[in-house]
Design a binder for these strands. Sequence first.
DNA 1: TATAATTAGATAATGATTATCAAAATAGAA
DNA 2: TTCTATTTTGATAATCATTATCTAATTATA
Lengths: 141, 141
Amino acid sequence: MEKNVTDLLREKGFKVTPQRLAIYKILTMTKTHPSAEMIFSQLQPSYPTMSLATVYKTVDILREIGMIQVLNAGEDSFRYDADTSDHPHVRCMECGRVDDLHDIDFSDFVDGVAKRTSYRLTGQQFYFYGICPDCQKRSAN
Amino acid sequence: MEKNVTDLLREKGFKVTPQRLAIYKILTMTKTHPSAEMIFSQLQPSYPTMSLATVYKTVDILREIGMIQVLNAGEDSFRYDADTSDHPHVRCMECGRVDDLHDIDFSDFVDGVAKRTSYRLTGQQFYFYGICPDCQKRSAN
DNA sequence: TATAATTAGATAATGATTATCAAAATAGAA
DNA sequence: TTCTATTTTGATAATCATTATCTAATTATA
Ligand SMILES: [Mn+2]
Ligand SMILES: [Mn+2]
Ligand SMILES: [Zn+2]
Ligand SMILES: [Zn+2]
């Protein structure tokens, strides 16, 4: 996994740095879809000199070389996901967490759109909104 | 149509002002899903003293009373849509325009998600990305 | 018309993201 | 391993969208 990033960075003409590997590793090890700020905070203990600008520059490169995808779930900041497979997301309107929706078949939906639009389609993002299990329990006191 | 907003504003305890009506009217008369800045620019000729802050405050109220919906198609700003029906959108990655995708059935997709998630779902947004017909022609020279 | 409550507009503040730039790190050659 | 050209980092300033603040103007109602 980590070897992949190293190779791909070099292949695309980017240098391999500890910061870049650390940021990518954070993303591979979480399912929380962190924002730049969250990544920055998580790296503070082990990389106290890390700059927030470096996080932004790195996620941009990782997206450019196809190692991560960028999410925009209607918040004021972007989130990053090392799982580049095409999967829908759901955001809790109460606590703000963003979860994956796996094993959902949406090929009919996508095919239907492709058939009816005159756009040449290149991708899509599906966002669901609701209340997560934890917040449901909490509000039920 | 316009009567609706007037009534609904009063009903919800908001005052009816020319600015609010003008902003809502702009949104009902376009299919371009304008941002706050675009709305502001379009109103400049007829409302030269309009403040951008008023546009932001108004779209927030219009959303609150359910007269418009807010879109987040992966850009750095929000877009607003007076068509509150549940419909997917497609954004051109070249010129940035955002179009509607109508007459698409996605109930199976939504049902499938509802069945598989433990979230209590309240809504969703579907965004497609691609190249619009105009940009396809243009790049074909 | 008079009045209380709300709103508009001007503008400052905020927060996320991007730009700048000198010092440090990387990669490849010697 | 050492040297060196190139890239990157971290600090910080700048930018851009959005929100907050405040007072004069407007609205709704009596
Ligand atoms: Mn995901
Ligand atoms: Mn629309
Ligand atoms: Zn929650
Ligand atoms: Zn286009």
